[in-house]
Design a binder for these strands. Sequence first.
DNA 1: CAACGGCTAAACATCC
DNA 2: TGGATGTTTAGCCGTT
Length: 675
Amino acid sequence: MMQESGTEATSDGQASQNGGTSMEGGSREGRPKSATPSVEVTAADLLHFQQHQVARQILLQQQQQQSQSHQLQSQQNTGRKSPKPNDKQQSLQVPVSVAMMTPQVITPQQMQQILQQQVLSPQQLQVLLQQQQALMLQQQQLQEFYKKQQEQLHLQLLQQQQQQQHAGGKQSKEQVSAQQLAFQQQLLQVQQVQQQHLLNLQRQGLLTIQPGQTGLPLHSLTQGMIPAELQQLWKEVTNAHVKEEHNNSSNNGHRGLDLSSPAPPKNPLLNQHASTNGQYMSHKRETSTLEEPSPHSHPLYGHGVCKWPGCEAVFEDFQSFLKHLNNEHALDDRSTAQCRVQMQVVQQLELQLAKDKERLQAMMTHLHVKSTEPKATPQPLNLVSSVTLSKSAPEASPPLSLPQTPTTPTAPLTPLSQTHSVITANSLHSVGPMRRRYSEKYNMPISPDISQNKEFYMNADVRPPFTYASLIRQAILESPEKQLTLNEIYNWFTRMFAYFRRNAATWKNAVRHNLSLHKCFVRVENVKGAVWTVDEIEFQKRRPQKISGSPALVKNIQTSLGYGPTLSAAFQASMAENNIPLYTTASIGSPTLNSLANAIREEMNGAMDHGNSNGSDSSPGRSPLPAMHHISVKEEPLDPEDHEGPLSLVTTANHSPDFDHHRDYDDDQGHDDML
DNA sequence: CAACGGCTAAACATCC
DNA sequence: TGGATGTTTAGCCGTT
């Protein structure tokens, strides 16, 4: 736990220089008293959140699939087709993934080449193209989602490691175990998504699976089918009529369920074990024999519709479908070509899944190896932050270059990233030296996003993109009493940010410096000593200049919503009250909405604060005279009315907007900010 | 280029 | 006496 002093001493040349300032001692960890419950993120929360997200993703996938399968016409390109700016799908279609996936998928041209070797009608070509494009989209989404899952896994791993390092307390064990549970759940979810994707494919008739091989796709696809097996599959498909005699019962419509609620997420280790050695064949046989009795379920027949690629013929009964299958999809050139295409598609999917599987295995292996590396943190970010802190944190210079590392300083706050702070890879934009100081124009407090990115900052050794003043303010406002002692502020810093677990001498000095320097921090004599409170007025006074950069934008946003520049405090308060729902909505919605909402709140707040600071505020609740406050609290230190009154009112008015203060919007404009 | 804000370092004072 | 806590100053840097 107290290793920070050691690390910082060795790490920081400057820290060692001023020998007199080795002040951290052991007091910091001594009393985690005012641990704000709202800040803590338990593993259970994490798990819950992830489950929710997975469910959402799956839902999105299904929606997209449905819409795409019907809408996709001769669109050559994927991605950016959604005309609506707030289309949720947009959030999933990230340029990066497009770039990554496109070469792995059969291009329409390729497919045309393939198909034109056969004798195919234009309609058939068209249909196949549509199928192919739908698949490409799905692959993109899948890729995207896998990425996110892996990022989450990574974060969890980090968190776990860090907790093993730092916490060491009794509760750490529980947390670790809980996280392990969450991690297991994560694995489960990845598998479920795989299966879901397979199911989707199957429903579209893009993937042919024999009824008795329900377990096949999961395994075979994840380890790559050898050509022989593809041949075998092909044979089985083409000779389906032979098999059908064995499967002659009901259950045609819910074949998919066999996949979606599959042989439940076996032990991931088991699964991966099977993937590592070549035991697939036997496994396959096992499952196939087990599930052979699944009657009447034909992979090409579902919901009364023929699932052959490009064929959506409807049949009342299974027999007629079989007849159709034998007649229309017999072994001819066309079917052969279609199957070839399908094979390539499957191969591509296999490759992709194999890669992801491999990665997952590596992660698990790493986890089980007991994490020999104590500091396996996403360092590339550190490189970024160390640009500004090059003087104080030179040890961070050698960053591990983990390109796929999900974490980026900007990421958690960029509107580009998914709102759930699953930092997407595309948020790794501009991995260059930080030019701008991270927080100059944004000395607003931590946004509520921090709660989502909390885990990130708690575990990643990344400097938070907030000024000391903002952080201090956040710490104070998060406390139940809206006041903290210096030591408690220290604790908050170390608790919330991994970055502040080292170089204590530096940042603590900075904290003290900021507390003394800024008028917005009011020192209040308490019974036990002195506590620090926030004078919101003073704090907000500094803001107007910060947003001067985009006055036109501010006005545009405000007027576009019908909000005048002069907003009453009451409205501000109501805004604050509605903040959480609003934000939540925006979060679930598109990033665009999210950033917009935050930008609006930020700018509006800035404007209003400006007015307030000029004394034009008529709000009765706002009477936080710093001096008076100071005095009154001195007399009645524990009387809530004295400090709670003004402060709580201020906080009510500012709570959300301020917490919402986002650097996002402007960052997005020129997002070299963090990197 | 100057003003400004933020960060870091450091000296110093005070209190426990 | 030493550490924690505050205050203040100075210098640097990036942005405006």
